[in-house]
Each structure stands twice: as structure tokens, then as C-alpha cells.
């Protein structure tokens, strides 16, 4: 083989791998929207499985409460600590409360809670459905005239989407409480004025935009987890891969869509 040929084949190789990667990305996006579309389609068709919805809502909502609550409370505490140290330099300590409540409700509580849930729930959705796929349990559902999207995916996606806003609402409260506790106990802030400042600049819109975000993130992370699991191939190793990439992809998509959502919801 001449040097020229080697070079050409090297270029072709690079192009090939770029092509394959981008094809893979398109495939991934296609699967995401396939699952999303099928989920919406089957949500409004009988039978409605109330018991399964409830079970999944407990699994997502109640079981995630400790980790989401802790995350948010410590975020509020750190936020108060950091802003206090900064604002102190230009004697604006009075605004710590506003910064904590605004940044928590608008941004930090929804995003951090969703990332935690992507790790906790998104991964387990992918592992669960992936295992069912590779052991032919999903085929068995089809064979028993049960649509797996309806039986498995709808309650899981539905429960995650429905449970994220209340989780984030609780996270908001705990985060604000964390900031309050630190400011009052460690920084010597006046409890009454701190409380006043917390709500002085806080609009209903700030809270509701955060909760809308939370619902959208819940939808995204659960559809990602389910689509990763649903299309798993390659045995136990494939399940492992699906689980990891459900968390990675879910988190990345949450952060990217966070930007655009913030732009839309201002």
C-alpha cells in the first residue's frame, strides 16, 4: 500500500467513524421521540392501571424524598454561606435571603433535584426495562396482547413527570430553610428581616417556572431511561451500558434543555 493510499484510507476511516457517531445520535433522538410519542398515545387508551401508577409514584416520589431533600437543604446552606461571604464585601448582606430564595426556586432546586432523580430513577428504569428486554419479558408482554409501552412505560414516565414538581416544591422549602438556618445561626442575620427579604422579590412566576421546569425534566429523564432500557441489546453487558448512558444522556439533556427553558420561561 502506498503512502497516499494509507492516508486516504485514514481519512475515510475518520469520516466513517464521524458518520457512524452522528448516525448513532440521530438514532438515539429518533428512539427518544418514538417512546415519547408512543407514551402519549397509550396514556389515553384503556385500560388505565391506577395501581401501577400509584406504585411508581411512591417509588419516584416518596423514595427520592430523602436524597432530594438533603441535596436541596445543603445547597441552600452553601448558597447562604457563599453569598454572605461575597455580599459582605460591599455591605449587601441584606440581600442574601433574596438571592437564596430566587436562585433556589428558579434554578437550583429543579435542576439539582432532576439530576439526582436522573441518577436514581433514570438508571433504574433503564436497568429494569433493559433486563426485561434481554430476557424476552417484553416480548412475552406483546405475546400476551399487552402493549409494553402502556403497561411498563406509561406509568413510569407518568409518575416521574407528576412527582417531580411536588418534590421540587419540597426541595424549595428545605433549601430556603437551610439558608435561613445558616444565616441566622452562623452569620447572625436578623430572623425577621431575613424572612421578609426571602419573599420580598419572589414572584409566583419564579416558583411556577421552576415547577414547570421540574415536570419537563421529569418527562425527559424518564423517557430517556425508558428508551435506553426498551431498546437494550447485548445481554447483561448491554443492560450495564444502557444504565450508564441513561444517566449521562438524561443529565446532559436536562442541562441543555434547562438553558432553553429558562430562555422561554424567563
Amino acid at each position: 500500500m502506498s503512502a497516499e493510499q494509507t492516508q486516504a484510507s485514514g481519512v475515510v476511516g475518520v469520516l466513517e467513524s464521524v458518520g457512524r457517531k452522528s448516525l448513532g445520535l440521530f438514532e438515539e433522538i429518533g428512539r427518544f421521540f418514538f417512546i415519547l410519542h408512543a407514551t402519549v398515545y397509550w396514556t389515553f387508551r384503556r385500560p388505565f392501571d391506577g395501581k401501577e401508577w400509584l406504585r411508581q409514584m411512591v417509588r419516584v416520589g416518596v423514595d427520592s424524598l430523602p436524597v432530594v431533600g438533603l441535596t436541596s437543604m445543603f445547597t441552600g446552606m452553601v448558597l447562604a454561606l457563599q453569598t454572605y461571604r461575597g455580599f459582605e464585601r460591599f455591605h449587601a448582606e441584606g440581600f442574601v435571603a433574596s438571592v437564596v430564595s430566587l436562585s433556589l426556586t428558579r434554578e437550583l432546586a429543579p435542576v439539582l433535584a432532576s439530576l439526582m432523580i436522573a441518577g436514581r430513577v433514570g438508571s433504574s428504569l433503564a436497568a429494569e426495562l433493559g433486563t426485561m428486554r434481554v430476557t424476552e419479558q417484553i416480548d412475552a408482554l406483546y405475546a400476551m396482547a399487552t402493549e409494553p409501552i402502556q403497561y411498563l412505560v406509561v406509568p413510569r414516565v407518568g409518575a416521574t413527570t407528576v412527582m417531580l414538581p411536588p418534590l421540587v416544591a419540597i426541595a424549595n422549602g428545605l433549601g430556603i430553610f437551610g439558608g435561613y438556618a445558616i444565616s441566622v445561626a452562623l452569620m447572625g442575620a436578623n430572623p425577621v428581616t431575613y424572612w421578609e427579604k426571602t419573599f420580598q422579590y419572589l414572584d409566583l412566576n419564579d416558583v411556577s417556572s421552576g415547577l414547570i421546569k421540574a415536570a419537563v425534566f421529569g418527562l425527559i429523564l424518564s423517557v430517556t431511561g425508558c428508551s435506553k432500557g426498551f431498546f437494550t441489546t447485548g445481554g447483561a453487558e448491554g443492560v450495564g451500558r444502557a444504565t450508564t448512558s441513561a444517566v449521562v444522556m438524561g443529565s446532559v439533556v436536562i442541562l441543555v434543555s434547562d438553558f432553553f427553558l429558562t430562555k422561554i420561561l424567563f
Binding site: 433486563t131 426485561m132 430476557t135 424476552e136 419479558q137 416480548d139 412475552a140 406483546y142 405475546a143 400476551m144 396482547a145 399487552t146
Partner: peptide
Amino acid sequence: RRKFGMSFQEGALFDSMTVFENIAFPLRRH
């Protein structure tokens, strides 16, 4: 598909359910 019953080469049993619930599944569903 409701006309069918199928047994799979590797069983394909639902591992979140007991043996009883597996066999009862199509009955409860349909």
C-alpha cells in the same frame, strides 16, 4: 395477538412476579 398463547425457549417469565402471578397474568389482563 389476543388469539395467541406463546411459550418462549427460555421461559421469559416476569421476574417481578411469583409463579402464580405469572400464570394469572393473561387471565387478569383479558
